[in-house]
């Protein structure tokens, strides 16, 4: 039987026209971010005469591309109401996997494949913990964060792996063309794909629906657990890929590689306007936030501010961008109330 919706409409007489004219609300957060990015850019070029140099700008991109590559699937994961705190641990383990593959004398393709594969496996384990064993994601990945980095330490101890073939350096140090790094091109391509998937496809809509109301999504025929599992796996894979880039850029593997990066990655995601409560977020926002983080930390670097002090800025940024709008809203409401 085929139900004719048109006939139904005629059958039950409508007494009211429903319009679909209203457009999506103006994406205020993204515009605000863009303004801050431009302001920071201006501030940087004013503070340092070397900033506007093409080589400096090219260098700048290395400051955020690796983290941003992980922030993309992280955004999808957080939109789906999950989170992965173990990404930096995954990067360490993936780096160790690559180092050992290189030490065993395998060639470039095997090394890169090993890094990504290790990431995918770690991500799949996270996904299995959350979907099969029903462990809350935050707890599960706090556990595996120690597990993955712990394994890296256990395997490597205080040793360093650096038997990488010379052409391995391309991923983290090479240029796709002119002064545009391979990393940047890869990031932009991945961002484009993520954005299209999230905002224009069935898969993206389902991710948003899962994050907005998992039960209603399940009842609507969406395979919620399957989506969750693959999102964790994807995030792990992205962490593996980022590990390829970072290891290639550094030229060596230490177990302490990428320590604390989970904070930066999650900060980029939240700063980009992704709601920690799920169901909301845009890839444009995440890309802008990554750029902003890169600009801020790079600018501070130009001013010879040590790395650890930058963490104050990063942490302050994370709290500030969320707290200030709420604060303004409350103040406005209070003023209107009196």
């Amino acid at each position: 039987m085929s139900l004719s919706i048109e006939q139904l409409a005629a059958d039950v007489r409508a007494d009211r026209e429903v319009h679909s004219a209203r457009k999506r609300p103006f994406m205020r957060w993204e515009w605000l971010l863009l303004l801050v990015v431009l302001a920071t850019f201006g501030l940087n070029s004013w503070a340092s005469p070397y900033f506007l140099d093409p080589y400096t700008l090219s260098d700048l991109t290395y400051n955020f591309t690796e983290k941003a590559i992980v922030a993309l699937p992280m955004a999808l994961l957080i939109i789906a109401r999950e989170i992965d705190i173990s990404v930096a641990g995954i990067m360490a383990l993936a780096s160790v996997a690559m180092g050992m593959t290189a030490a065993a004398g395998y060639g470039l393709p095997a090394i890169v494949a090993m890094g990504v594969l290790a990431g995918l496996l770690c991500g799949a384990l996270n996904g299995a913990l959350v979907t099969l064993f029903k462990v809350p994601a935050i707890v599960a990945t706090i556990g595996t964060m120690s597990l993955y980095r712990g394994i890296a330490y256990a395997v490597l101890g205080d040793k360093v792996l650096k038997a990488y073939p010379p052409d391995f350096a391309y991923f983290g140090q090479g240029y796709a063309f002119s002064l545009v790094s391979f990393e940047l091109v890869l990031f932009l391509a991945l961002a484009l794909v993520s954005g299209i998937v999230l905002h224009f496809t069935v898969v993206g809509r389902r991710i948003v629906a899962i994050g907005s109301n998992p039960t209603a999504a399940l009842f609507s025929g969406i395979r919620v657990e399957r989506y969750r599992f693959w999102l964790f796996t994807l995030t792990g894979g992205a962490a593996g890929l980022a590990s390829v880039l970072l290891t290639s850029r550094l030229g060596s593997t230490r177990p302490s590689i990428a320590v604390g990066w989970e904070l930066d990655i999650i900060t980029i995601t939240i700063l980009g306007g992704v709601s920690i409560l799920g169901g909301k977020g845009s890839i444009v926002g995440v890309v802008l936030a990554a750029l902003l983080m890169g600009l801020v930390t790079f600018g501070l670097g130009l001013l010879n501010v040590p790395g650890i002090v930058m963490s104050i800025v990063v942490g302050g940024l994370l709290i500030g961008v969320i707290a200030l709008p709420i604060l303004f809203r409350q103040m406005r409401a209070a003023r209107r109330g009196t």
Binding site: V139, G143, I151, Y153
Partner: peptide, 15 residues
């Protein structure tokens, strides 16, 4: 150097 891995494992099993 194994300590972190083992406590990570214990946490994971506990959760």
């Amino acid at each position: 150097f194994w300590q972190m891995a083992i406590s990570g494992l214990v946490i994971t099993i506990a959760v």
